[in-house]
């Protein structure tokens, strides 16, 4: 018996719609964005012996604070300074967000549940992510301000610093799985019965640190460098435009974290094997839970760290992370040779 809404529900549940738009895509991405920023503020506050956001919805610990903030961003006047390149200034925030959410098309949410199934999903996701710095640099240039220019240059430097390590460490893991498809990687981990982080811990560690650098989270929030360059490339933005650029970095962290969990923490496979067979959708929940816990850890670091200096972050990238990622590649290679 078909209800009148069934075709619609069926359409929504189709992977090509559900995956990019609902989960893990836009909708859940927005939820993650709002709750993660709240959680970041709450956790930093707890470490610092404070309460954090509280008075917006006091009964639930101020969880609606971010919705209030988002509303404020919407209603705040976006000021467009006279000296900016108007088209670039207005287009880049939207462009940055677009580039950030595009990888959702290729990230599988569950076995064979992906927007567009391609066998090169890992390089596609990383390549789309690598476009973000280009947009940020464009934004910095378009805003035509001393602080944004310095911020743009820092973004360019940082990109050089982390991108190589990020790619090599990802491919080092992929080398052992002998595939570039994220779905297949999870299946490989299932067949091995081990998460990727145990198979190749160095690659996992390097990917995690490079991920923090890529999404400019502490201790690598060098691009925004408030104490020197106000807000870096985002200095001139206000209102919803600022909301967009601020949200983009969190969304990018979410994207990379999904990739990390699928590559190194056996994705949607439950911690205890065989649990997934109870109910197939549980896989998606598992993926989300793992991702969210790691996201919480990543933003918790705000309460522990200060900011590295630009050249120190770069030398960390080139002198430590790149060699380590090469070692990780050799490790994978060695494991393959040894036939483990």
């Amino acid at each position: 018996m078909l209800g009148p809404l069934d075709p619609l529900i069926n359409f929504i549940l189709e992977p090509y719609f559900f995956s990019p738009f609902i989960y893990p895509g836009l909708t859940i991405g927005l939820v993650v964005l709002l709750t993660l920023i709240w959680a970041e503020r709450k956790m930093a506050a707890k470490v610092q012996l404070r309460y954090g956001p509280l008075y917006v919805s006091k009964q639930i610990g101020g969880a609606l604070q971010m919705i209030a903030d988002a509303l404020r961003f919407f209603f705040q006047e976006p000021i467009i300074p006279r000296q900016v390149d108007k088209i670039v200034f207005l287009a880049t925030p939207a462009l940055a967000l677009t580039v950030t959410v595009l990888p959702f098309i290729f990230i599988p949410a569950a076995p064979s549940y992906v927007g567009v199934a391609v066998s090169y999903s890992l390089p596609l996701v990383l390549a789309l992510g690598a476009l973000i710095p280009v947009v940020i640099i464009l934004m910095a240039w378009g805003a035509n301000n001393k602080f944004t220019l310095v911020g743009g240059i820092r973004e360019a430097f940082m990109t050089v610093g982390y991108e190589v390590a990020l790619f090599i460490s990802a491919f080092a893991a992929a080398l052992y799985y002998k595939t570039l498809d994220l779905s297949v990687m999870v299946e490989k981990q299932a067949s091995l019965g081990l998460p990727g982080i145990i198979i190749n811990p160095i690659a996992g560690f390097v990917f995690f640190v490079a991920m923090l650098m890529a999404s400019s989270k502490l201790p690598f929030d060098i691009v925004e460098g408030e104490q020197e360059i106000v807000a870096g490339p985002f200095t001139e933005y206000s209102g919803i435009l600022y909301g967009l650029v601020m949200g983009a970095s969190y969304l990018y962290l979410y994207v990379l974290m999904l990739v990390f969990v699928e590559m190194f923490l056996s994705g949607w496979l439950p911690v205890i094997h065989g649990l997934g067979s109870i109910y197939p959708a549980l896989g998606g929940v598992m993926l989300f839970v793992k991702t969210y816990i790691l996201l919480l850890f990543a933003v918790f670091l705000r309460g522990v760290y200060g900011r590295y200096r630009l050249d120190q972050a770069l030398s960390l990238g080139w002198r430590r992370l790149v060699p380590l990622s090469l070692i990780a590649a050799l490790w994978s290679f060695g494991l393959l040779i040894a036939g483990v």
């Binding site: 610092q48 104490q227 760290y305």
Partner: peptide
Amino acid sequence: TGIFINHSTMYMWSFG
């Protein structure tokens, strides 16, 4: 000094 390198915990702790 803490907040100058964006170490907000040091900032809050020492002011607290």
